[in-house]
C-alpha cells in the first residue's frame, strides 16, 4: 500500500515536471484554441481607453494594448487566423461575463482592486487614475464641501458616496446619490443640470468633457479621493494566460511602445471628433511603466 502510494506520488511529480515540456494548455488559452476565437470585452464610453468610434467600432488605448495581447496569443498558439470577437460590457456585467466565459479579456477602465481579485484576475497595471469630480463651471461647486445636500451622479456600482465620506472634508456632508447606467449617462446628469457633480476617475471625466457639446462649460475639481490602478481583467487563477498577457504588456512598457501609444491617445487628437485630451503622463503612470506591478488597490 505504502509502496504503491510512493509510486503514485512519484509518477504524479514526474507528470507535473513533464507537463511544461509538452506545453500543456489550460484555461483560457485552451478555450481559445478549442473555439478558434478570442472574445475581447470592451466599454462603450470609457474615453480614451475603450469606446466607440464614428463607425461604432471599439477603439482606444486599452484596445490597442489588447490588440498586442491578441497578437501574442496568435503566435503562442500558432493560429495566425484566430478570430477576434468584441463584446460590449458594462460595469455591472463585466465580472460575471468574465466568469461565465463570455469574454476572455476585458480592456476598458477596470480598477484593479483587492476585492475584485477574489473573483477575477488582473494583468499588470497600465494606468493610474485619480478619483475626482466633474462639475459645471457655473454651478459654483469647487470642493467636496460644496456638495452638501446636492445630488451627485455616479455610475452604478462605483461608490462615490463611500469615497466622499472617507475624505476629510466630506465627513460632515450628506449627498444625494443618483445613478447613471454608464459613464456617459452620469455625465449627462451633470450636463443637463440634474446632478451637481459626477465623481469618477479623472481621465474618464476629461474624456467625457472633451466629447461634450461645450467642453468649456465644465471643470474637474477637488482633491483626489483615491488613486486607482487599471488592469486588463482576466479569469482568476489562470497563470499561463496571465503570464502571456503580462509579458506582452511589460514588453510594451519597456520598449517605449506603450508610451508612444499613450501619446497617441492622450496627447493627440482622437476620433471620432478629433479632440485632444492633453493629459500628460502623471508621475504615477511613469512609475507604473518603469516598475510594472499587478498590485490592486485596497
Amino acid at each position: 500500500m505504502r509502496k504503491s502510494l510512493t509510486v503514485l506520488a512519484l509518477s504524479l511529480s514526474i507528470a507535473g515536471l513533464a507537463a511544461p515540456a509538452h506545453a500543456q494548455l489550460s484555461g483560457t488559452l485552451q478555450k481559445i484554441k478549442d473555439s478558434g476565437t478570442i472574445t475581447v470585452g470592451h466599454r462603450e464610453s470609457s474615453v480614451p481607453f475603450s469606446y466607440l468610434d464614428a463607425e461604432q467600432k471599439p477603439i482606444g488605448y486599452a484596445m490597442e494594448l489588447c490588440a498586442k495581447v491578441v497578437d501574442a496569443v496568435k503566435s503562442e498558439l500558432k493560429m495566425p487566423s484566430l478570430q477576434v470577437k468584441y463584446q460590449a460590457v458594462t460595469s455591472q456585467n463585466r465580472i460575471p461575463l468574465m466568469q461565465n466565459g463570455t469574454i476572455d479579456l476585458e480592456c476598458g477602465s477596470t480598477t484593479n482592486s483587492v476585492a475584485r481579485q477574489q473573483q477575477v484576475g488582473f494583468s499588470v497595471n497600465y494606468f493610474i487614475t485619480s478619483v475626482r469630480m466633474a462639475v459645471r463651471k457655473d454651478s459654483g461647486v469647487k470642493d467636496i464641501g460644496d456638495l452638501n445636500g446636492k445630488p451627485v451622479a455616479t455610475t452604478t456600482g462605483t461608490t462615490s458616496d463611500a469615497l466622499i465620506k472617507q475624505n476629510e472634508k466630506g465627513k460632515a456632508i450628506d449627498v444625494k446619490n443618483i445613478y447613471g447606467k454608464d459613464h456617459a449617462d452620469s455625465f449627462l446628469m451633470v450636463e443637463s443640470g440634474r446632478a451637481a457633480a459626477f465623481v469618477m476617475d479623472d481621465i474618464l471625466l476629461a474624456g467625457l468633457i472633451a466629447s461634450s457639446k461645450n467642453p468649456a462649460d465644465f471643470a474637474i475639481v477637488g482633491p483626489s479621493l483615491r488613486d486607482e490602478p487599471y488592469g486588463v481583467m482576466l479569469r482568476k487563477d489562470d497563470a499561463p494566460f496571465k503570464a502571456l498577457v503580462d509579458k506582452t504588456l511589460i514588453g510594451l512598457m519597456q520598449s517605449g511602445e506603450a508610451e508612444k501609444l499613450y501619446n497617441k491617445w492622450f496627447m493627440n487628437p482622437i476620433p471620432p471628433r478629433n479632440v485632444n485630451l492633453n493629459f500628460p503622463m502623471s508621475p504615477a503612470v511613469k512609475a507604473a511603466f518603469a516598475t510594472p506591478s499587478d498590485k490592486g488597490v485596497e
Partner: peptide
C-alpha cells in the same frame, strides 16, 4: 433606467458587487 433604486436595480448592483449571480 430613470434612477429608481427598485428591485431590478439592486439585482444588478448586487451582481456587480458580489458576482454571486
Amino acid at each position: 433606467a430613470v434612477g429608481i433604486l427598485e428591485l431590478y436595480f439592486q439585482y444588478k448592483q448586487i451582481i456587480e458587487k458580489t458576482s454571486q449571480v
